[in-house]
Design a protein around this nucleic acid. Structure first.
Length: 924
RNA sequence: GCCGGGAUGGUGGAAUAGGUAGACACGCAAGACUUAAAAUCUUGUGGCCGUAAGGCCGUGCGGGUUCGAUUCCCGCUCCUGGUACCA
């Protein structure tokens, strides 16, 4: 075998790995563990494009590196296989989504295997398999059977809550529950009917059924979560989304809000991602204040973060959706106010969001009383107040809040300053200013004033300090077919769990995947979607779980994917612990990553797992964008003019398949063969070539800029693809895919191969002792690779390999003492060629069982250094000097240098800076 | 609006406890090999002036600190991600 025949080599070793289960990871307490995880993909019909494997390659390199360093590495892969596209396809074609999904997974797996990943395929999970979603349903049941105890600050069983209700009622229980939960005694509880008991418990359960305002997407026929909605449109498909009240299952994630916030501190994640989660959770510390309505027993509760400005309140404002608002309208304002509410309510969420400049509102006619100073203030309805946040009512302080200020200006309401400062430029928050004109909180600063005001509220029983979160409870149902059924049936309108022995509750067959004619979810089409109990048959829940259910705990299942009796063996989840390196896109910052942390904390509370954070370290790879190529057609002809000459003709740009363009030069024959109508195309060339234009766009079929990894592998091999994806630039950066530079890494692999072969292509290494230069070239690369691995700078490691191979080639090195460690060094990046070379070097078995070479500093020690000599900060010459020289000796050498003397023009330098081993700088 | 990230040759990018800007690679140019092309190899390649030696300019823009700034500070411009009447 003379040439570097990557096709044979890669096939051979991929088969070897599979046959020998090289990457199977089993619990081994004698070795340190390393859990390396990729965000698992949704297997779409389009297959993988070159952007998908970027993160997988990075984690694969780290995994292989850790293995060489003696770690027991778990590096699994699986599929997030429930989801909308397969279902949409099913609706169009009638093909069962399970079949489509199966086909897509087969294609993905084949593509992934071609890249030579060190995945432990024996650990594969698929969220749509019933042996997997059995446990997703099981977790749902645990959530249903749990409540969040605020004193214990953890989830506890609902049975223990019932016991406490029986003994003490709910007054003394601090637990996360619905806002409208009423107080009851033990006697009340014991007298309750079964129905009332169940309804009450639903207000406490961590997953519960409640009437909620949801994001309803009519086009998709389903509810969407907040993170699935982008600017009023569905993330998938871009259909309009409206707000609607519906009976829905929710997850009480808000109970975990504070722990989700605190937990971020100890995670090794990038600051932007942590910040996004903090913003999403949106903790605000403030107070509830109750305002009495004048001449009425109605009360208005507002939430504010600035009680210190309470003396500056000049009106209250309610959300148009508020029922209270309608109730407070007086006869003389009725016509105007009701008309306003009607208009405001009918404005879509999107309209309200995009149009924040128009100020609108209406006076209700009612007055409220400021409990601090007894003043009567007007109560308004305004659409800048959101029903979904806080209490849906605000106390307006125009002097110190911009929105209140604009509103007050517009309607001519009073603006009263209560913090020292200038009002010349409108309102100001004045967080550091002295409180004035504010009764007993005057002459205080914000914090003290707030504390004193809250003290007053709590004493009078008209308010209390409160922490408000922006995050809402997560809606957990979708009116779709292709998802996990909820293990719930209904008896007398109340939800009950099915028995654990009946798990998994398998998705039923239906005739069509569409909602029913009367708007019921697709599962309503199933003929026997009922649950049989001793008491009779009851209807099962017809909604399914959202996409994020299965992906919120898959990292635990990987440790023990075939377990039929438990979610995973505790000994296994204990051993593998939390994920040591998680790589994936930052687009999941507020969805998947938050839900996974929530479920992990819940499972931790129940003692099912021992870690309370799933992902210790995370790296977010940047998206690979497409780079489109264009040809320029002369209008009305079949003539195409090269990029540089296009201005001389009347042309229009046309996307051309990037796979028939090399280094922006069009392959004319392939172009003619591309489409029948181009067969007789004519070209106007420049310098004998057709040069294409280019532009960075999203990678998509319609732009003909999708590059398939299979094609790259066919042409250059998997090792080249792996190296090139890493060489492209920093992992976290967004960058367009451009195949232009790929020849460079391909050449590198050939040069690497040639080091182990003589000029007639025969394998030949020498057992002679390597020279100092050879050791130096190798150890520079070892050091660089280890340093880069710590910083995830994969691109610079590839450079250092190139430098190393270039140097060794120049030295004509073929020493075993250099080439053996070199093969190990590059093996995480280019595993196939490394295995082959290792084998040629006479080793049995896989290079992945080798030990990473030990870096020896002594090979890099230099005795001399080439000092840059700067005059006034500009580099003028270089002096090669012994590193043992003292500062004085360096100075002497520098001053006696000819070029330096020329620049000094006989004058003595004003200042001399000498940093040994670094630089000499003379100031004239 | 608010909170992040970024801007370096023709291109991807390298270099930050402040110390030779442009590593490595692509592309381009010239040459070698070849009937020719591809492939491969060699040399050159930030811009301007100069035959050269050499000089001047140069890391988005404008200032500042420093012997010395791509790196630190102040003020902008543009691109990009997130988020938004959140009280």
């Amino acid at each position: 075998m003379a040439e570097y025949t990557f096709k044979d080599i890669e096939k051979k070793w991929q088969a070897y790995w599979e046959e020998n289960q090289t990457f199977q990871a089993n619990v081994n307490p004698d070795k340190p563990k390393f859990y390396s995880l990729d965000m698992f993909p949704y297997p779409s019909g389009a297959g993988l494009h070159v952007g998908h494997p970027l993160g997988y390659i990075a984690s694969d390199i780290v995994s292989r590196f850790k293995k060489l360093k003696g770690f027991n590495v778990l590096h699994p892969m699986g599929y997030d296989s429930f989801g909308l596209p397969a279902e949409q396809y099913a609706i169009q074609t009638g093909q069962h989504p399970a079949i489509t999904t199966e086909q897509n997974i087969a294609r993905y797996t084949e593509q992934l295997k071609n890249i030579g990943f060190a995945f432990d395929w024996s650990k594969e999970v698929r969220t749509s398999n019933s042996d997997y979603y059995k446990w997703t349903q099981w977790i749902f049941m645990q959530l249903f059977n749990s409540y969040y105890d605020l004193d214990a600050d953890k989830a506890l069983s609902i049975d223990s809550l019932i016991e406490r209700f029986e003994k003490e009622g709910n007054a003394s229980i601090k637990a996360a529950c619905d806002e409208d939960t009423e107080k009851f005694t033990a006697a009340d509880w014991n007298a309750y009917s079964e129905k009332i008991k169940q309804e009450t418990l639903l207000k406490y359960r961590l997953t519960f059924l409640a009437e909620t305002t949801v994001n309803w997407c009519a086009a998709l026929g389903t509810v969407l979560s907040n993170d699935e909605v982008k600017e009023g449109f569905s993330e998938r498909g871009g259909h309009p989304v409206e707000r609607k009240k519906m009976m829905q299952w929710s997850m009480r994630i808000t109970a975990y809000a504070d722990r989700l916030l605190q937990g971020l501190e100890k995670l090794d994640w990038s600051e932007p991602i942590k910040e996004m989660q903090r913003n999403w959770i949106g903790k605000s510390i403030g107070a509830d204040v109750v305002f009495q309505v004048k001449d009425s027993d109605q009360k208005i509760k507002v939430f504010t973060t600035r009680v210190d400005t309470i003396y500056g309140v000049t009106y209250l404002a309610l959300a148009p959706e508020s029922e209270l608002a309608a109730a407070l309208i007086t006869e003389d304002q009725r016509e105007k106010a009701e008309a306003y509410i009607e208009v405001a309510k009918n404005r879509s969420e999107r309209e309200r969001m995009s149009d924040v400049k128009t100020i609108s509102g209406a006076f209700t006619g009612s007055y409220a009383i400021n409990p601090f100073n007894g003043e009567e203030i007007q109560v308004w309805v305004a659409d800048y107040v959101l029903a979904g946040y806080g209490t849906g009512a605000v106390m307006a302080v125009p002097a110190h809040d911009e929105r209140d200020y604009n509103f007050a200006k517009h309607f001519g309401l009073e603006i009263r300053q209560v913090i020292e400062g200038s009002m010349e430029e409108g309102s100001f928050p004045g967080k550091g200013g002295l409180i004035i004109n504010s009764g007993f909180i005057s002459n205080l600063y914000m914090k003290d004033a707030m504390n004193k005001a809250i003290e007053f509220l709590e004493e009078k029983g008209i308010g209390k300090g409160k922490i408000q979160y922006r995050m809402r409870d997560a809606i957990f149902t979708r009116q779709r077919y292709w998802g996990e059924p909820l293990p719930v049936y209904f008896k007398e309108g109340l939800p009950y769990l099915i028995e654990e022995k009946d798990l998994p509750l398998v998705l039923p067959e239906v005739d069509k995947y569409l909602p029913t004619e009367d708007g019921e979810p697709p599962l309503a089409r199933a003929s026997d979607w009922n649950y049989k109990t001793a008491e009779g048959e009851f209807p099962l829940e017809r909604s399914t779980m959202p996409g994020w259910a299965g992906s919120s705990w898959y990292f635990f299942r990987y440790t023990d994917p075939k377990n039929e009796t438990e979610l995973a063996d505790k000994a296994k989840t204990d051993y593998w612990g939390s994920v040591d390196l998680y790589i994936g896109g930052s687009e999941h910052a507020t969805g998947h990553l938050l839900y996974s942390r929530f479920w992990t904390k819940f499972l931790y509370d129940l003692g099912i797992v021992t870690v309370d954070e799933p992902f210790q370290k995370m790296i977010n790879q940047g998206m690979i964008q497409g780079r489109s190529n264009f040809v320029y057609r002369v209008k009305g002809t079949n003539q195409f003019v090269s990029y540089g000459l296009r201005d001389q003709y009347d042309t229009f740009a046309m996307h051309v398949d990037v796979n028939i363009v090399y280094n922006d030069q069009l392959n004319l024959d392939k172009f003619k063969a591309w489409r029948p109508d181009l067969a007789d195309a004519e070209f106007i060339l420049e310098d004998g070539k057709y040069i294409c234009g280019s532009e960075v766009e999203k990678m998509s079929k319609s732009k003909y800029n999708v590059v398939n990894p299979d094609d790259i592998i066919e042409r250059y091999g998997a090792d080249t693809l792996r190296l090139y994806e890493m060489f492209l630039g920093p992992l976290e950066q967004f960058k367009p895919w451009n195949t232009n530079g790929i020849d460079g890494v391909y050449k590198f692999l050939r040069k690497l191969w040639n080091l182990y072969h003589n000029s007639s292509g025969e394998f030949q290494v020498s057992d002679a002792e390597p020279s100092k230069e050879e050791y130096k070239a190798l150890h520079k690369a070892i050091k660089k690779m280890e340093d880069d691995m710590a910083n995830f700078s994969f691109n610079t490691s590839v450079s250092s390999f190139m430098i190393c191979v270039n140097e060794l080639t120049a030295l004509k090195s073929n020493k075993r003492g250099i080439l053996e460690p070199l093969a190990i060094l590059v093996s995480p990046y280019a595993p196939h060629i490394a295995e082959e070379l290792w084998n040629l070097l006479g080793h049995e078995g896989s290079i992945t069982d080798a030990t990473f070479p030990i870096f020896d500093e002594s090979h890099l020690v230099e005795s001399a250094f080439e000092y840059p000599v700067m005059i006034n900060g500009k580099m003028r010459t270089k002096l090669s000097l012994d590193l043992s020289l003292s500062k004085d000796q360096i100075q002497e050498a520098a001053l006696s240098d000819e070029i330096v003397m020329k620049w000094l023009e006989g004058k003595a330098p004003k200042k001399i800076i000498i940093v040994p081993g670094k630089i000499v700088n003379l100031v004239v």
